[in-house]
Amino acid sequence: MNSASILPHLNAVLNGISIVLLVVARVLIARGDIEAHRRAMLSALGVSALFLLSYIAYHVTSPIFVFRGHGVVRPVYYTLLVSHVILAAVALPLILVTARLGLKRAVPRHRRWARWTWPIWMYVSVSGLAVYLMLYGIES
């Protein structure tokens, strides 16, 4: 097996884990469990970092996988993909700033940033998984 056959599936699993951790972290902070929230968010950050490394490794070592869908699903796929890519680029600095503020316990600033960061991070994770499902779930 080569990286082209393994890494996309690993990336999807890592995205799925990120989604679960982000939801868990959101529930924990809503309950006021700051330390558990912190652990869940740091875990989401770690899993997302692994995803980013795996994603880069995949794109450096593998050919481009072409979307095989036709008809109305094609513009849906590309709209989703473009929004995913743009927001992924926006998400990285937001995530890093928000995490830094949280680790410094700068709570009011952390909350202001997190109100934007969490939904963007969640969208990027969910849309990444959706892009994967559309790429690998649609037969030619």
Score class of each variant (00 low, 15 high):
92 L>P: 01
107 V>Q: 09
69 G>T: 10
14 L>H: 05
32 G>S: 10
40 A>T: 00
19 I>H: 10
128 G>H: 01
104 K>N: 09
83 S>Y: 10
54 S>I: 04
43 S>C: 04
26 R>F: 15
98 T>Q: 04
136 Y>V: 15
33 D>A: 11
121 W>N: 00
136 Y>C: 06
130 A>P: 07
66 V>M: 02
16 G>D: 03
114 A>N: 06
10 L>V: 10
54 S>Q: 05
114 A>G: 02
65 F>L: 10
9 H>C: 09
25 A>K: 06
1 M>K: 03
122 M>Y: 03
84 H>E: 06
12 A>C: 09
88 A>Q: 04
135 L>S: 05
17 I>Y: 01
12 A>R: 08
114 A>F: 04
69 G>Y: 02
33 D>S: 13
86 I>V: 14
22 L>M: 13
93 P>T: 03
111 R>I: 07
50 L>G: 05
126 V>D: 00
80 L>F: 02
30 A>Q: 15
64 I>V: 10
71 G>I: 06
115 R>F: 11
74 R>A: 13
64 I>W: 09
80 L>D: 08
42 L>Y: 09
74 R>K: 14
104 K>Y: 06
44 A>E: 07
87 L>D: 12
79 T>C: 10
4 A>D: 13
43 S>F: 01
21 L>H: 07
19 I>R: 08
91 A>H: 05
82 V>K: 05
47 V>H: 00
76 V>A: 09
86 I>Q: 07
58 Y>P: 07
23 V>S: 13
108 P>G: 07
24 V>W: 12
51 F>Q: 01
108 P>Q: 01
117 T>F: 01
77 Y>D: 14
6 I>S: 02
78 Y>D: 04
38 R>T: 01
13 V>T: 09
114 A>V: 00
101 L>V: 00
16 G>L: 09
77 Y>V: 12
28 L>W: 08
5 S>G: 13
19 I>W: 12
36 A>G: 09
8 P>G: 03
78 Y>T: 00
13 V>L: 15
120 I>L: 06
113 W>V: 13
86 I>D: 14
136 Y>N: 09
126 V>R: 01
10 L>E: 10
63 P>Q: 11
106 A>L: 12
128 G>A: 01
130 A>D: 03
